[in-house]
Design a protein around this nucleic acid. Structure first.
Length: 555
RNA sequence: UGACCCAUGGUGUAACGGUAGCACUACAGAUUUUGGUUCUGUCUGUUAAGGUUCGAAUCCUUAUGGGUCAACCA
């Protein structure tokens, strides 16, 4: 890392302050606490990196704890997916994955303790009545008629709740805090509800389940979490978090809130993401256009780039909207370093080399990665029939165009310099280009003395493999699709977010390429083989384009 | 209109009472067998008004703007 003064974010400042004061003997322990009810997305990546990187930086530990206190929405399927995603991001949690449901008995005991202290009561009111009595933020709430039940009665009722003697929704356990607090969360929050439902881990052992507020802080405390990092919307929960810890006299974990990350052209609403899948706008949770970790992985975004992105985006408490260009920059930066180069012509136009012996095939060599000598080189076949990109030829080139045009010369990457001598057309356009090559201009041993402006990618028509390229663009046409009061995100679906091209010609080495490995198709962009990829039928997903310094205006 | 949080270039984030910096973006230029990479440069900023101070992005006050909170969700 860079020398000089370290720029600490506000969480690091708090941690270093705690370290200076010898708090918790210098121990740092964080946690990532997803609810297993969906797939992880870009917003979670932020939370994951903050928790794991902070612990790493200060020699601490990070737990993975599933916040599984609501059996209605949770499932083991999600547990598996979440663990896979975190591992893929490059993080390893402390020991085994933990579950809030492992603490159900302990939490129950805490609740009994609270009742015994006169700080919790069973309320028989309906949900509507409870909401009514809470009133509004500007108006003090009123106390429930059940608020002053005796401790004995509360104990008996709560035990009966656990024993399954009551119907769902007929009663709840509430903490006795302050019905007139300006903080709505302190107005006697519900801490246990009755749900006769099957839990993905505890099965049918319980019919009462703790609410978030009664599970999260205590779980942190049980695990000895020192710094419990969460997003800003939990700020109002902190007084309650502290209240339970204080009344119960348990380990004082500290909650710290940061602003969650928003990225242009992306949405993170679970409901809306689900709708994209259900309506078939995308092919699934791992569609390469999805902001899910699974989607970004399939798209070809490297885990290191995602980590780098979060680090560069920083952490603070103000609302933010980070431009997706920063993410793409991180992706390109990483890919430029590691991606092997290859040549693929996406929209082929045939080139015949008139002065090259027909039937002859020559082997040329091309470096795999100019950024990395150890990446070695590969073989390319060359013959009198080639393909180049349709965009790389213009009959009437504009000023500043230095690709191929009638009478013009270009270098074919890692091969020879060619000159266009004849254009064969029909009414639909250019059919074929007839060119001469310069034998002395062979790449690496060029004695021709010729200098050309342009270098084009190409493939040998005789050995090229035909295949498919799936070109992905932003899913939405608006940078903040969810940020309009008068419009829905579905009003901003980009109709061209996926363009499938089945006419691409790949150099023959594509047969050796593997799913998930990043490649740079020279002068086009970064791509990764999809799971549908086969050696004889290539299928690649576009990850991100190369930066373009020159744009050809289409006629 | 109750409480709480926040306000630095187009975007994000630093500066902890003492030269407003870095990154992304955009735009130039150099290098280049990828119009990529690399390198160099340019543009643009402390929400406002008062106050404290030799000195304020930073401390205080007020205003303005934005956000959050009223699930038996997390």
């Amino acid at each position: 890392m860079s020398e000089g003064k370290a720029h600490l974010n506000f969480i690091e400042e708090i941690i270093e302050e705690d370290l200076r004061n010898g708090k918790h003997s210098g121990r740092i322990h964080t946690r990532f606490p997803p609810e297993p009810n969906g797939y992880l997305h870009i917003g979670h990546v932020k939370a994951i990196t903050i928790n794991f990187e902070l612990a790493k930086k200060y020699g601490g530990k990070t737990n993975l704890r599933f916040d599984d206190t609501n059996p209605t929405t949770e499932d083991t399927e999600y547990v598996e997916g979440i663990m896979q995603d975190i591992r893929w991001l490059g993080y390893q949690w402390e020991a085994e994955a933990l579950y809030a449901s492992d603490y159900f008995e302990q939490l129950y005991q805490y609740a009994l303790k609270l009742i015994e202290m006169g700080l919790a009561y069973v309320d028989d009111s309906t949900p509507e009545q409870i909401a009514e009595m809470k009133k509004t933020p500007t108006e003090a709430g009123i106390e429930s008629p059940y608020r002053n039940r005796s401790i004995e009665e509360n104990l008996e009722l709560f035990k009966d709740m656990r024993a399954g003697k009551f119907e769902d929704g007929s009663r709840v356990l509430r903490a006795k805090v302050d019905m007139s607090s300006p903080n709505m969360h302190m107005r006697d929050p519900v801490i246990y509800r009755i749900k006769h439902e099957h839990h993905h881990r505890t099965g049918d052992n319980w019919c009462i389940y703790p609410m978030y507020d009664f599970a999260h802080g205590q779980s942190d405390s049980i695990e000895g979490i020192t710094h419990s990092l969460c997003s800003l919307e939990f700020t109002h929960h902190r007084p309650l978090y502290d209240w339970f810890i204080e009344k119960l006299g348990i380990f004082p974990s500290r909650q710290i809130e940061f602003a969650r990350m928003n990225v242009t052209y992306m949405i993170t609403s679970k409901r809306k993401l689900l709708k994209l899948v259900e309506e078939g706008i995308v092919t699934g949770w791992d569609d390469p256009r999805m902001p899910t970790i699974a989607g970004m992985r399939r798209r070809g975004y490297p885990a290191a780039a995602l980590r780098q992105f979060c680090e560069k985006a920083g952490v603070a408490k103000r609302d933010n909207l980070i431009e997706i260009e920063l993410l793409e920059s991180c992706v390109r930066d990483e890919l430029n370093r590691i991606a092997l180069r290859a040549m693929v012509v996406t929209d082929p136009i045939k080139v015949v080399i008139t002065n090259y012996e027909e039937g002859k095939t020559e082997v040329l060599f091309a470096e795999n990665n100019p950024e990395d000598e150890t990446a070695g080189s590969r073989e390319l076949s060359f013959s009198n029939e080639l393909f180049i990109e349709r965009d790389d030829f213009m009959e009437n080139p504009p000023k500043g165009y230095f690709r191929l045009y009638p009478g013009g010369s270009v270098r074919l990457k890692s091969a020879y310099i060619i000159t266009c001598e004849e254009v064969i057309k029909d009414e639909n356009g250019v059919l074929e280009l007839r060119c001469k090559y310069v034998p002395e201009s062979k790449s690496g041993e060029d004695t021709s003395g010729l200098k050309v402006k342009g270098t084009l990618h190409w493939v040998d028509a005789k050995t090229a493999i035909e295949g498919e390229i799936r070109d992905y663009d932003r899913l939405f046409t608006d940078p903040t699709p969810a940020g309009h009061d008068d419009k829905d995100v579905f009003d901003f679906i980009n109709p061209e977010s996926l363009i499938i091209n089945k006419n691409a010609r790949f150099e023959s080495s594509v047969a050796l390429m593997k799913e998930g490995t990043p490649y740079q198709f020279m002068r086009k962009g970064y791509y990764t083989a999809d799971r549908d990829h086969r050696p004889d039928h290539p299928v690649f997903n576009s990850t991100v384009n190369l930066k373009e310094g020159f744009k050809v205006q289409k006629a």
